[in-house]
Amino acid sequence: MNAFRLAGDMTHLITVLILLLKIYATKSCSGISLKTQELYVMVFVARYLDLFTNFISVYNSVMKVVFVTSSIAIVWCMRIHPLVRRTYDKEQDTFRHYFLVAGSFGLALLFNENFTFREVCWAFSIYLEAVAILPQLVLLQRSGNVDNLTGQYVFFLGAYRVFYILNWIYRYFTEKHFSRWISWIAGLVQTALYADFFYYYFISWKNNSKLQLPA
């Protein structure tokens, strides 16, 4: 485990805590895309199938449980919780995310490390995570102004991916066999999706103005 990887996981954890904090403190999920959260549940369930089969470390297992349970808790709040579900921007959150699921699954069937159930699910989760943020970015552009917590949420999600890319670069130079081409390609695509968001986030931070995304 290198520092980049740990920083990446901690940043990822922060994104989950930001969402839970926002929902718990404001009892509102306005500005949050339920579609993106549902995609994340699929990502974590498909990727952490090995939670009970191959044990890596206590840290690894604990973090997997945290990510799966928190992503399910967020979807539960946005769908079921009587107060929170009313604040969901149903009309704005219209991205047809099932195409992302179908596309990622098709890609996983074609490109995977081994054509086994577990490897196909793993590749599926990697591809799906790369595009899972799309409904959220579209929702932000639709709603124009971005409230602070949601802006920070997307920012930290992007930061977690940047740390993971640094982690892969570090591992590439320090370990012989390290060649996660699936993660590399999907990770680069995923981080690229954040590029324009980072740009507008930086501009708003520099001008100390509200984050405005071009519609």
């Binding site: 890596i56 973090m63 990510f67 370990e175 066999h177 390290f178």
Partner: peptide
């Protein structure tokens, strides 16, 4: 390091 890299990342 096993030849097949173990999925040790989250």
């Amino acid at each position: 390091n096993p030849s097949k890299d173990v999925k040790d990342e989250l």
